[in-house]
């Protein structure tokens, strides 16, 4: 099964006088349960591509099919709905809600998905357990270490059982030992059947993936299966 397919995607930013071509015709097919790393120098378009794949942004041209559904022309609220049901984000800067505790942070996608409180709690606790933070469920983010925060973010990303988990430089703000712990969790998720797309510029991190796509100047330079 195809998890997603992008066809000849371009993204052009209109600056004051110049046009910035962040993506210039990118096509890519990702199957279910792939573990794929997107690499490339700074400014090559990695984040732009992640935003399009994560339905945070729409392409200037080209098509994007997510689980067979064309999402390239959807409006804001429709995209929000798609993100809520099909995408799990893990950010470099964790992006947790500071005033909410771990449990509430993890529950949040389910709240916006309209799930009942008891069901929510059950799923959130299970997700927290999977990242090994059950004893921290009532802690606030500022009471946690960086690695723990990123684990909360992963729990939040997987709680709604998304089609794909997108991780944009998930270890960028962590020391290498902690980063390795986080990668272990992502590996486990992959083994459990999740589709994982990872952006990184570190080779050791990319080594965890089974397929590496390299971007340069908004185009795919290489696409190789490594495992």
């Amino acid at each position: 099964m195809k998890a997603l397919e992008i066809q000849n995607i371009t993204k052009t930013y209109q600056m004051a006088s110049v046009e910035v071509h962040a993506l210039r015709g990118v096509s890519l097919e990702i199957k279910d349960n792939e573990y794929i790393a997107i690499m490339g120098p700074s400014g090559s378009g990695k984040s732009t591509m992640m935003n399009v794949i994560g339905c945070l942004d729409t392409p200037t041209s080209g098509n994007y099919l997510l689980e067979g559904e064309d999402v390239s022309h959807m409006g804001d609220d429709q995209l929000a709905e798609i993100r809520n049901r099909k995408i799990g984000f893990v950010f470099q800067t964790f992006n947790l809600i500071p005033r909410s505790n771990v449990l509430h942070n993890v529950e949040l996608p389910l709240i916006y998905g309209g799930m009942s409180a008891s069901k929510r709690r059950e799923l959130a606790e299970a997700a927290i357990e999977r990242v090994g933070l059950s004893d921290r469920a009532d802690h606030k983010p500022n009471e946690l270490s960086g690695g723990q925060r990123q684990r909360v973010a992963i729990a939040r990303a997987l709680v709604n059982n998304p089609s794909i988990i997108l991780a944009d430089e998930p270890t960028g703000n962590l020391d290498s030992a902690t980063g390795e712990e986080i990668m272990q969790i992502l590996n486990e998720l992959h083994n459990a059947g999740n589709t994982i797309i990872l952006v990184t510029h570190e080779n050791e991190i990319a080594d965890h993936a089974h397929r590496i796509v390299r971007l340069r100047d908004g185009m795919i330079e290489s696409d190789e299966v490594t495992k």
């Binding site: 929000a80 809600i97 996608p109 916006y112």
Partner: peptide, 16 residues
């Protein structure tokens, strides 16, 4: 602003 971004990213609609 950032909190709003997070909420939107994980699926909050405009209405929420």
């Amino acid at each position: 602003t950032r909190e709003i971004g997070i909420r939107k990213a994980i699926g909050a609609k405009k209405r929420a």
